[in-house]
Amino acid sequence: MKKIIIGDNIVKSFGVDNEKHNVLDGVSVEINEGEFVSVMGPSGSGKSTLMYAMSGMDGIDGGKVSFDGRDLSALSEKELADIRRTKMSFVFQQPTLLKNLNILDNIILPSLRDNRKSAAKITEKARALMKKVGITELEKRDITQVSGGQLQRAGICRALISNPKIIFGDEPTGALNSKSAQEIMDIFSEINADGNAVMLVTHDAKVAARTERIMFMRDGKIVSELKLPKFDGMDMDGRVEKVTVEMRKMGI
């Protein structure tokens, strides 16, 4: 299977000269096309930093990250922005929608930058995505007029508008109640089933249990990896159990 991201011996450190602290201490990760992976670990283990390093959102201090065959550290700010706009997208814990725009405008925003002429087509697609996640009636609403779960769905629609190869999620269900969280995970499963790769960073064993590969991190290193079969809606409890056992084993 083709690999979209290859992270090789990634080092990322914070702090000043002689008090440097490696948040990522030589991490190597590979993600395949259409794969559904998650990263787990305690606070400060470096899981979010890993995600930002692999997406090129943050620079790295050592090692190499290749996206779609291109070395991210060799790319200019513009080329990186181009990749972010067309080949990958993000869903954050807090829905990062812009205040001034209504829900629909927020969703079409990234795609519209390059294809203003096909705005009608993009809007069409946005409406289809909104229908898929169940927020059709909200398109003209202000972002202050909808719930957190609805905002997160809008955020996912925005992530999908440009048909990315991979979607990164940084605790995408972290701010939601359990019912909303479950619905959002259903949507992620569906997205993955449609062929997009998904990489999630999470604290939540239930979220991780939905994915097919779980990487466990501690102190800037991947300490263990758990593989699960593709989720088919069955045996959720068993999957969660496996994840929690592994977590306990790793002392997480």
């Binding site: 922005a81 067309t86 954050f92 990062t96 812009l98 930058r113």
Partner: peptide, 16 residues
């Protein structure tokens, strides 16, 4: 700052 960070995460360049 926040909106700018969002824009950048969406793939808007500095010149945008």
């Amino acid at each position: 700052r926040y909106s700018i960070a969002v824009m950048k995460s969406l793939g808007f360049t500095n010149s945008d």
